[in-house]
Simulated assay, not measured.
Amino acid sequence: MSANLSVAAYTYEHTQALFDGRVRIDGVDAAFETASLVSDIFRRTIEGRYDIAELGLTYFLRTFDLDDAPFLALPIFPNRNFRHSAVFVNTAAGIEKPQDLAGKTIGEFALFGHDAGVWPKGILSDEYGVTVQQCRWVIGGTNHPIPAFDWIPQPLPARLDVRHASEHETLAAMLESGQIDALISVDVPQPLLNGSPKVARLFPDYEAVERDYYQRTGIFPPMHIVAVRKELAGQTDLLRSVYRAFVEAKDQAELRYLNDAPKQHMSLVTPWFSSLFEANRRLLGEDWWPYGLGANRKAVDTFLRYHYEQGLSRRPLTSRDIFVPEFLDT
């Protein structure tokens, strides 16, 4: 008899096969749900709507400070991105190098310590000596005003200067006007997309910087995991079926690009994609989007350290604390 499960994830190309039925979860009658904003999936997951769901790493980790943490994770990483490209500056703020961020007022998207913020702030500390305590912080929406995310714990380091933007302010406009000196955001500020000379990236050649970062560290930063409710954690066979299905859906997406390579990816509209594809395979390997803890342990351990150092976890967490035990050897 099939188990009935509610499952939620964003419809990436590497999860699409789960939604359209090309990949099924063995032994599970799964009702899949998505949302136009991935943060809506996070909120609904925290509110208890799903059995299994994609959840941002920081949103997931913050639940471990609750009296009864409701989730454990499967080592499935549906969203990952290099994040040197997530730091933007006002061109009149005197920020020529990362170290110049010290003492500045920095905007951050959605909450202090969103997933795309934890990574660059950790890197700024490790590699450039700039800590979160050295800056002032303004939280808000990048291109659209957003209210505070009151559905998730909001820990802050002691003696940190943090405020939320007003209900009519956007961080993009504040950056362009000089009200804030810099911005860390998953969303690209619209003035930059519009060609404003007042907004630039901290790392103009971010691709080269991010490729160098991967070559030195081996880290392709994960942003999200797949969370399961703790009451399901003991159902190993069921969870292995879930894990296999997510892996198969991802493998199908990768296989499409591999199979299109002999035809120079003529099915795609992006010019010179084949050159990019070849360069990525040389750097990232044949499975450039790996699941399982073995291939991601260093990245996960680094994020856990950053989360604690930035005051977002009360205690240092380890992989053994957060993953379903039977998946620690994946």
Score class of each variant (00 low, 15 high):
1 M>F: 06
6 S>L: 01
13 E>V: 00
16 Q>R: 11
18 L>W: 10
19 F>Q: 09
25 I>D: 04
28 V>C: 07
37 L>N: 12
37 L>S: 15
38 V>D: 10
41 I>H: 08
42 F>N: 13
52 I>S: 14
55 L>I: 08
57 L>D: 02
61 L>P: 11
61 L>M: 13
65 D>L: 06
72 L>S: 14
72 L>A: 11
73 A>N: 03
76 I>W: 03
77 F>P: 12
77 F>T: 13
84 H>Q: 09
91 T>E: 05
96 E>K: 10
97 K>I: 12
98 P>D: 09
105 T>F: 04
106 I>F: 13
108 E>G: 10
108 E>A: 10
109 F>P: 04
112 F>I: 07
112 F>R: 09
113 G>D: 11
114 H>Q: 15
118 V>G: 12
118 V>F: 06
126 D>V: 08
131 T>F: 03
133 Q>D: 14
141 G>D: 03
141 G>C: 06
142 T>S: 10
142 T>N: 12
147 P>Q: 10
150 D>A: 10
154 Q>C: 01
155 P>G: 12
159 R>P: 00
159 R>S: 11
163 R>E: 07
163 R>H: 01
165 A>E: 09
169 E>Q: 15
170 T>D: 03
172 A>F: 06
173 A>W: 01
177 S>M: 13
178 G>T: 08
180 I>D: 08
181 D>T: 01
182 A>N: 06
183 L>K: 00
185 S>T: 05
192 L>R: 12
192 L>I: 13
195 G>D: 02
195 G>M: 08
202 L>M: 05
210 E>N: 05
214 Y>C: 03
215 Q>L: 02
220 F>Y: 13
223 M>L: 11
224 H>K: 03
229 R>K: 14
235 Q>P: 00
240 R>V: 00
242 V>P: 11
245 A>K: 07
250 K>G: 07
250 K>C: 08
251 D>E: 12
262 P>G: 04
264 Q>C: 02
265 H>D: 06
267 S>N: 13
269 V>C: 00
269 V>P: 00
269 V>D: 08
280 N>Y: 14
282 R>S: 10
283 L>E: 01
291 Y>Q: 02
292 G>T: 10
294 G>W: 00
295 A>K: 14
304 L>R: 01
312 L>N: 15
314 R>Y: 04
315 R>Q: 05
317 L>E: 07
320 R>H: 12
321 D>C: 05
323 F>E: 11
323 F>V: 02
328 L>C: 11
330 T>K: 09
